[in-house]
Write a protein that binds this DNA or RNA. Sequence first.
DNA 1: GCCAACGTTGGC
DNA 2: GCCAACGTTGGC
Length: 152
Amino acid sequence: MNYWLFKSEPDVYGIDALASEPNQQCRWDGVRNYQARNHLRDDVIVGDQVLFYHSSCGTPGVAGIMEVVKAAYSDPAQLDPENGYYDPKATADNPRWYVVDVKLVRKFSRLLPLSKLKKQPSLAGMQLFKQGRLSVVPLTKTEWLMILSLEE
DNA sequence: GCCAACGTTGGC
DNA sequence: GCCAACGTTGGC
């Protein structure tokens, strides 16, 4: 079992949007970065635990916890010219982009802000800080436990 | 809005 | 393959 952090802009799709889905479940789509894609396609498995991270917003930070309920499959949006995630270089036989399905485990009672994570010396080596632009970030179990212990 | 840190594209 | 130009992410 693995630990991850998935980023989403709350103005586009935040944790409250996930909470109001049927079964509090959704397709995690729109990943269009190869490194993030490779994680989704090759490394994310059913049962993996995922932090839902709100990015590019007033207070960026961790909003809650999700669990992977379906492993990677081809993102149907890449084949649909009407869809914003359409990719003309992708085909059904040779897809470029993948998605997974996730469900909400729980929303934090309070957002855990990035500023608080940054104050923790034991988290200083996190890939989240080293590589700011990655939308699917792996976490070690130690980092996962540390982050959860900071929740109020 | 600014800017750093990437990633992508396209000419050569 | 190199590199400049451009685009995107994301914190501040």
